[in-house]
Amino acid sequence: MIDIWNIVDIALFAAMLRMATPLVLAAIGGVFTERAGVINIGLEGMMMLGAFWGVATSHWTGSPWLGMIVGMIVGGLAALVHAFLSIKYNANQIVSALGINILALGLTPYLSAMIWGSRGASAAVTGLPRWEIPLIRDIPVLSEFLGPHSPTVFLMVIIVIAAHLILFKTRWGLHIRATGEFTKAAATAGVNIQRTRYICVVISGVLAGLAGVHLALGHLAMFSWGMTGGRGFIALAVMIFGNWRPYRAIAAGLLFGFVDALQIRLQGIGVPVQFPQMLPYLITIAVLAGVMGRARPPSDIGKPYD
């Protein structure tokens, strides 16, 4: 009999928070772009590009902070390509985002081989520092749960709150939601559909880039081939499970983050890892099927607008 408390301890919950961070960040990006009516299944690729350029920048400049900024910018630029093709040129939103994913899959090992001489992994670089919250540093259990973490973890919490406030408490948030829900009505009411969509898609890329930076500089301090490991797709699952709402997304993200952290532990004691790894995907299908709760995407999603 396995002692369950050897597996479930406070460090597991700290790991849950770390694992949830990239999922939630990219999922919030997904919420923005889909609320504005543009599907972005390119989050995975944008995350990968963000992770790569974050590490490359830290490698060249020695500054992980600069790496973080560059990672976010590159994620945003990749999203801009998606926005440009799908909004301006009416490209199929699935196709252009897939193109971004494949581009990232090819470009990152190609450049990794150029820079570090290996397609598989970069050299170790300076990662982001670990932060603690001063006030709770001395509280025993809570301090272990809430720190020390990469700044990206704390940033994620702030971004979730900000996203909720922007989407549901500001006029611009109303415009975003109207754009994805009733595009024509929003346009009649004077919302600039194209601009709203451009901005939201770029936001999604920036957040996916930050998610990649978290993996590469907040978690490991290096880049390795395929390190995003499908998290951009799980982020879509988080977004759907969270019903396109930031607060629910963080709850869903923590659940999937917990599964992710748990499967690493279970791996250590010989449980086949593939089944816990399947869970996020299966849960998402169950949610979409209406077996667990009900998810409803914005109604005008995926439709180009001239």
């Binding site: 390509v81 093709l85 799908s86 301006k88 040129y89 009416n90 490209a91 199929n92 196709v95 252009s96 897939l98 193109g99 971004i100 994913n101 494949i102 581009l103 899959l105 090819g106 470009l107 090992p109 190609y110 081989a113 397609r119």
Partner: peptide, 24 residues
Amino acid sequence: TPVPLDIVVVLQAMVILFIAAPKL
């Protein structure tokens, strides 16, 4: 040559991106 195989994946991605946009 020292060129990694991944250049092929990049070419493939570019084909997709270029045929993605019917207007273009």
